[in-house]
């Protein structure tokens, strides 16, 4: 891992809240990173490969949002 030190917490509420917040942060980072890649001309396949998920999954999750944001998307094949 990089320089992030994960403090041990004895408080269960805090530990669980951290999980929720990290998931939310990861979602926000994923949205931004996928948008950036697609604007830079990446294909769905490359983005999917980089995220370690299927092309169908990445398309299903992000296509509508990116179209709504005005990103020009490559055709799917």
């Amino acid at each position: 891992m990089s320089g992030i030190e994960v403090p041990a917490t004895a408080d269960s509420a805090e530990a669980l809240a951290s999980v929720v917040a990290l998931r939310r942060l990861a979602d926000r980072l994923e949205d931004a990173a996928v948008e950036q890649a697609m604007r830079a001309g990446w294909t769905w396949s490359d983005v999917a490969e980089a995220l370690g998920i299927t092309r169908q999954a990445v398309h299903k999750k992000h296509a509508k949002r990116l179209i709504a944001a005005g990103v020009e998307l490559p055709r799917r094949r």
Binding site: I4, P7, E14, A17, L22, I67
Partner: peptide
Amino acid sequence: EFRRSLSAAGVIVDDRELPPPSRSP
């Protein structure tokens, strides 16, 4: 609450650097 819960996991975020949530289509 979001900031504090992240910091409990060792992640310090600066709102100015964090991408805003993207609106659901």
